[in-house]
Write a protein that binds this DNA or RNA. Structure first.
Length: 190
DNA sequence: CATATGATGGACT
DNA sequence: GTCCATCATATGG
């Protein structure tokens, strides 16, 4: 069951924390790939210099101002990065999915990736899009309605500690720690 | 059209 | 740990 619109239409940090432990699923023609979200980062709007919504709207980032629950996919350093928009209409925000614990379609993910070791399949923002075959084709998709690409609750555990740190790779970060990850999980990126 | 610039990954020491 | 290839965008001429 996809997460509801209201799940995404909240404070971006809260959504980033609560996305941990959910599963991201991509259905392909005859199979399913996906895994458990173990690392996220929150990005706000104009008061967040690291955010793509801190300046003007562009073709790509404009959906950050629209309703929450939409896929935002863009290219950085020759990698597609997958985000979900947050907050209600007119308030910009998005959560970057930085790492997954691979669960479904291991063989397919290995085919998609340059590095085949399980540990490196989905342990980074550009790695997981490669493994799940997420590209700009998915940009703008409504994750609350799609039956092809979506995020859902997991059966099992909420038994994990959340740790936080500063965001990775940004040139100008805020005081607040806006990167969240599951403590001790081996697929959290370094 | 030309160029600069990354929410990075991978190979290597 | 270090180094650098990568390519879709954005932006300016």
């Amino acid at each position: 069951m996809n997460l509801y619109r209201k799940f995404y239409e909240r404070d971006t940090e809260e959504v980033a924390r609560e996305l941990l432990g959910k599963e991201l699923i991509h259905k392909l023609k005859n199979s399913i790939v996906g895994g458990k979200i173990v690392e996220t980062e929150a990005y706000y709007g104009k008061d967040d210099p690291a955010s793509r919504a801190s300046e003007k709207r562009t073709k790509i980032n404009k959906i950050m101002w629209e309703e929450g629950g939409t896929a935002l996919v863009y290219m950085v350093h020759a990698n597609w990065l997958f985000n979900v928009t947050t907050e209600v209409q007119d308030i910009p925000g998005a959560v970057l999915i930085r790492a997954l614990e691979p669960l479904y379609g291991m063989e397919i993910m290995k085919k998609n990736r340059t590095r085949k070791e399980t540990k490196h399949l989905t342990s980074g923002p550009g790695k997981l899009t490669q493994a799940l075959n997420i590209t700009k084709d998915h940009h703008g998709k409504d994750l609350t309605k799609s039956d092809e690409l979506f995020i859902q609750e997991m059966e099992d555990d909420k038994n994990f500690e959340i740790e936080s740190s500063h965001r990775i790779g940004v040139t100008e970060d805020l005081e607040e720690k806006l990167r969240f990850y599951i403590a001790g999980n081996e697929f959290v990126s370094s």
